[in-house]
Nucleic acid binder design. Structure first.
Lengths: 233, 233
DNA sequence: CATCCACGTGTACGTTGTACACGGCGGATT
DNA sequence: AATCCGCCGTGTACAACGTACACGTGGATG
């Protein structure tokens, strides 16, 4: 019930709203949150709007905003020139880098169809890398999705790892082990799960696993390569 | 503000509440929903409770309920006897079946640490299948996670495929193609994404892809096998 | 018979996405 | 120059969600 006189007539609205500004703000918010979560209210606040409703004129809905965010990240992924293997390998590595920058992207990629312009361009390049082989349409797309599935799956695992690490507020591996310690110790004393326990008590469990993203990617490429019948390359 | 007289003194509460009944009800609800979503209110209604708060005495929180649901499904996965490859292959196939029954499980598996009794038992069996090789702890777990990562990644893709299919309310592939048709046609006319368009307009794109779950699983097992140095088997 | 406690309930709060109608500014039209 | 129209940001409002809290009741226990 404040008096009209106190109102400033034209709050000097910071800058024109736009789809680009909104998407950029949403991405910044998602990047800053371990879980990568975004609320319309938070985005509105960041673009200087006083109400979440202002966003709806530009992005339609929260799902629409999610689609736009995802497509932006699709645009960060590239397929390098070269033979099919160089192309798909580069796709995997470049996707992995993008997913490490934006782990929330893995969740969106799994939950929204990739129909934005950047996504289509990426699929187009990836399919182009398989030109020159006599492949059925399903097989061609299957090869691309095999690689991308690995990228997004690894991304989700990364998202969860970071979230779990922060849930207990512990950055280092040693602290993490300490948090799970009492539970594991109880299990150990009960004598069940002996193989699991042996793993859990082995300090070497924190070593970098040889089944790295890249190693598995190469296994997949080996498998794809075995199914390729060359026609001209 | 209804009068007391109308109240029935003891609503013949259907049956005793219990953690098992609650988890079972939640799983039924998740199975019945394409997105696999569950609300505390829906679970409460299904177990015959008049308020969601009754559940909290048994499951602690919604995340707790999710953990219990996930562990129940971990219990449906088994590692068959045999050599390492039979074990891990069976793990993958049995996991894939469980994930097809409960696609929401893939999401939970990615977003909650597998510390329930069934999950631990499963990891224990899987690690046991790798006994007899001189593997570091990280490498051993990495092999198991390679297989499970494939299972859960494929499960998430399945979840999204089913959800997208119902979003437009179309069960058949032809209808699905019809829904995306106008959009694809516009793209086609603009002449961009030629390789993608060629795929989209190829009826063979609906063929079963040769990169099936099982095929990729075998590729991964090939890769794992190449890293194993046998000690006694 | 008195006591206690495990249980299910009802009420209530904060947060979320978003529907809807309004006021005001700028540019096009007359 | 006066008028209108359409775009834009705003405020209010609501339904659904997870869940904190305090209460009554009934059966087991002393």
């Amino acid at each position: 019930m404040s008096l009209v006189w106190f109102d400033v007539p034209a709050p000097p609205r910071g800058e024109q709203l736009s789809r680009e500004r909104i998407v950029a703000a949403a991405i910044e918010i998602a990047d800053a949150d371990v879980r990568g979560e975004v609320t319309m209210r938070a985005v509105a606040a960041r673009v200087g709007s006083s109400t979440p409703m202002s966003l709806y004129r530009y992005v339609g809905s929260k799902d629409g905003l999610a689609d736009l965010m995802a497509d932006e990240v699709y645009g960060e992924i590239t397929v390098p020139p070269g033979d099919w293997r160089a192309g798909l390998r580069g796709l995997g590595l470049s996707g992995w880098e993008a997913v490490q920058r934006h782990p929330w992207f893995a969740r969106l990629a799994f939950s929204r169809p990739p129909l934005g312009p950047h996504a289509l361009a990426l699929y187009d390049s990836a399919l182009a890398a398989l030109d020159g082989f006599e492949l059925g349409a399903a097989e061609r797309m299957g090869a691309v999705n095999t690689v991308l599935g690995h990228v997004f799956g690894s991304g989700l695992a990364l998202l969860e790892e970071r979230a779990m690490r922060q849930r207990a507020g512990l950055p280092t591996d040693e602290d993490l082990a300490g948090a799970a310690g009492p539970y594991l110790q109880r299990i150990t004393e009960e004598g069940r799960y002996p193989h699991f326990i042996r793993w859990a008590n082995d300090p070497a469990r924190l070593d970098p696993a040889p089944q790295s993203f890249e190693r598995i990617l190469d296994w997949l490429l080996d498998g794809i390569g075995a199914t390729l019948v060359t026609a001209q390359g």
